[in-house]
Design a protein around this nucleic acid. Structure first.
Lengths: 193, 193
DNA sequence: TCGTGACGTTACAGAGCGGTAACACCCTAG
DNA sequence: CTAGGGTGTTACCGCTCTGTAACGTCACGA
């Protein structure tokens, strides 16, 4: 059978990729290391040679997904170089795509829900990465020339976060269906001041 | 020691109350039935005499929390009888209180994150209860005399949902801190049309 | 008084979990 | 050719989990 993922990729990378996917689909506590290694076409020993513990693997997965998200942001700048307002609209479109194609929400937010222990090592990472994303959105809003850029960015943040969690609890016909209308309306309204 | 909860309450109610609290604090997969029964001052056999399974207990807990939420809504009507706009503002205040006093978010949304299996029996219940709450907010907005009541209600829904999940991932200094400003601004803006 | 039903206690089954030890293998660099 | 490091395999440890069986115990109502 064509395994695809196991052809010429290092076990560590296969594990990381597979774990990201499975954590995303089934939740962190919903998948064990055995299942991950088996799906990655390797075994538990190899996992523990590359990662100190499951918690360590979780953290590396979160960093990897944040890295992918950053790449998407870079694509906005590449597509509309200098035009920050166009990038902001591209962000809205991208979000609505994500909402349409995936109903498991944000890995970091989900991890924060699942890892309820306040001193869990992953929580630091989640906070750091989320703060970085917030800052990026604030900058985009500011450079797009809207007044109260922080307030607009935070509002869009909450709408996004809410849409992704609402999608999981009530489905695609719920409030999240109106995300684009809400976001575009807000941007226009902030822009008008 | 003064146990409080075990004085004259039926074991079933003690279990239900304790389970709600522990599920909320530690997550559904983060707490076992043994821990629940012990905290409720009873034992596992008694739990399984009153609930078919852990899944059944989860569902009953969700129903119970939805019931408590409904009571809060009723309190708005009792406090401002007939004045729907005042009730809407009371709702905003209540939400901001919740955000300030509790950082574990919405039990139903959290459950939807944790119970990723699409055919999990709790998911039906979550969807039903969330849809009921949505309808209630839509009605409140409509009767408060705003145009596009559905859109306002859905926007407020997403802001609330987003604030509660953002609180868990980035903390109280994150975007959720601006919830009241956002909500009041939206209500005013919708009201002005 | 008796018995009935709710509750508590102990023990256990069966499975899954994270994590480790020991050893065999194979590819590649020197 | 050979040595060594990365990898695969098997077996295991100790723990926790949901769920059940068997047996006491106690209160209360007929």
């Amino acid at each position: 059978m064509a395994d695809g993922i196991s052809e010429r990729v290092r076990p560590r990378d296969r594990i990381l990729e597979t774990a990201q996917d499975m954590f995303h689909k089934h939740g962190i506590k919903g998948v064990g290391v055995d299942a991950i290694t088996e799906a990655a076409g390797t075994n538990k020993m190899t996992l523990y040679r590359h990662f100190e513990s499951k918690d360590d693997l979780i953290i590396e997965c979160l960093r990897a997904t944040a890295c992918k998200a950053a790449a998407i942001w870079d694509a906005f700048e590449a597509e509309y170089p200098g035009d920050k307002l166009a990038q902001l609209h591209a962000w809205v479109r991208k979000v609505s795509e994500m909402l349409a194609n995936d109903s498991r929400g944000c890995d970091m937010a989900n991890a924060a829900v699942e890892l309820s222990e306040t001193d869990h090592p992953a929580r630091r990472v989640i906070k750091e990465l989320k703060e970085a994303q917030r800052e990026r959105l604030v900058n985009l809003c500011r450079e797009a020339g809207v007044g109260q850029a922080e307030l607009l960015a935070d509002t869009l943040s909450l709408l996004l976060e809410g849409a992704r969690v609402s999608l999981q609890s009530v489905g695609a016909e719920g409030p999240s269906a109106q995300f684009v209308r809400m976001a575009e309306g807000l941007i226009a309204s902030f822009k008008a001041r």
